[in-house]
Design a binder for these strands. Sequence first.
DNA 1: CGGTTTGTTGCAAACGTTTGAAACAATACT
DNA 2: AGTATTGTTTCAAACGTTTGCAACAAACCG
Lengths: 338, 338
Amino acid sequence: MKGHQVTIKDIARILHISPSTVSRALKDHPDINPQTKNNVQELAKKMNYKPNKVALSLLQQESKIIGVIIPEIIHHFFSTVISGIEKVANDAGYHIIICQSNESYLKEVENVQALLSSNIDGFIISMAKTTTRFEHFKNIEEIGVPIVFFDRACEEVKADKVIVDDYNGAYSATMHLIENKCRNLVHFAGPQNLTIGVERKRGFLSALKEKNHIIHDYTIQYCDTFEHAQNLIPELLLMHPEIDGIFTVNDATAVGAMIALKRLNKQIPSDIALAGFTNSFISYMTDPELTTVDQKAYEMGQNAAQLLLKRMQSYDDFDPVTTVLNTELIIRKSSVRK
Amino acid sequence: MKGHQVTIKDIARILHISPSTVSRALKDHPDINPQTKNNVQELAKKMNYKPNKVALSLLQQESKIIGVIIPEIIHHFFSTVISGIEKVANDAGYHIIICQSNESYLKEVENVQALLSSNIDGFIISMAKTTTRFEHFKNIEEIGVPIVFFDRACEEVKADKVIVDDYNGAYSATMHLIENKCRNLVHFAGPQNLTIGVERKRGFLSALKEKNHIIHDYTIQYCDTFEHAQNLIPELLLMHPEIDGIFTVNDATAVGAMIALKRLNKQIPSDIALAGFTNSFISYMTDPELTTVDQKAYEMGQNAAQLLLKRMQSYDDFDPVTTVLNTELIIRKSSVRK
DNA sequence: CGGTTTGTTGCAAACGTTTGAAACAATACT
DNA sequence: AGTATTGTTTCAAACGTTTGCAACAAACCG
């Protein structure tokens, strides 16, 4: 039932010449008779010939495909990064193949294997939350396929990285909350096996210490999802009604908190001020609009792709590069008190 | 600088046997000496041999890859559909390669060409808004690669489709607004070259007619983005302050309208009731929460992938199937009046 | 006229894998 | 002993493409 794409062989058969002649004619090789060249090129056009990438990939050991492994595509942050990657990759003649780990270590390993056996030219990866072993990345390294990590990087592997300055982003968001008279701040933190979880917490605590705020046992809450925040807020405020500001590790968590707070009839920002991290598009759709730290998702994707291209095109092994993007505090109504 | 994956040839060389023996040993072929079989299998495991998919793809003329072409991955609807596709595809041993058209006809054509020459086994496509010519789809059809369209289907091509019952979804959302005492409803409609644009408008108008509402020249507004809605609302309300309800072709447009309405100090739903279409996750993050029509994104992805798998695995050409998913009206606060 | 150059084309190998057919040795049967 | 059978292995072709080298004819040079 399935036909097939036109091949060089088809053209050769029709014109009674050899495939090699067709191949050369198509690339304007000087050895070929102009007449023959013309015939071939015309027929190729008429038959809508397109070179078979699989054959090329096998022959030249490069696929012009970049493998991208991310936790979940439905997160606006990740899909924005992908857009950035795709833009740069496409402009350089590459395509991307996207795999989701769904935050599962096993799925991540599977994805790596599958991409490796598809002759992928390079990897762009953001680790799953549950990944604590790194053999699969080491495996890529041994084979010699370049990797660029973004956002959630693996420190154990020698690879290029693009991250944002999580520490300073968190620090300035916290400072901003303090300047807006928050006296009992809480941080909803991410998992501590990810650098972003560690760094954002560190930035938060740094600001508190600098301003001589007391750090209570409840100051750090491990909570990084929309749902968890909704559940956590009521019990947390019941125990600690003095809380007057929350800085969350990401926007979805902040929005979850906002909804839960409204249900408790808390006024934002007057009762409790809120700041998130990411600047995803929900942040300007909430009421009040959410103060957040812009994570430069699109730029991050572009940078990652550029780094990877550079690495793939260079012959000598230059040292791993870590690009740190500056974050930007986006001040909106959820945190500004009169 | 680049090493390479372990191949059958490597194993053959080390064990001083031929590649064909290695190949058969790995698949437990009865012809092979158990001793040899063992040696091969052990070495393969030790060296972490993984079959080269590119070579297989070339030989067997199937890549186990499904090409997915969508307008923009950053839209929650599309990334959710992709998750549904990926789940079903992965379970069946397929991988997906995602391309974005960015709503551009040219980019869509390019994507089709690129995927075709990568020996893709099947396509899952949602058309770009600007696509009005269909040669590229016809081309796929001729070559015999199956296509499944979802959400935005191409009527000119004989292919399977998965759509939602846009007409009834729009009809019931509109009826709901009428029941909540809207007397001057407006529809923010999508482009009319897409079936969804046509059908949602048709469902809206149907409900109005059934209830004998007057259809004014301003009743249908062509507006389907967040930004456009924000700009349109002020001028529209200035001209027609009697408007008391809006049904939008998608959620982002509804949220844009909501923000603009709040800026004008309009109360939602008491002054103006709002309903969207999609049930994207922003719809329960707004204040008030947005009434919307659930478009069954994840199910749509699953259905599309299942249809495609069935088509790829069948030898005879059964007639094109169109799966229509039922929508579900999700009633939230943006439309319910006391 | 013998030899070189030039223009044009085809052959064959390569990429990694599968698979029908051929090859070969060892064993079994008549 | 001669033939058939069995067990095991290798060969060769195929998928579509590229490319160094060989092949061949025609034209040129001395």
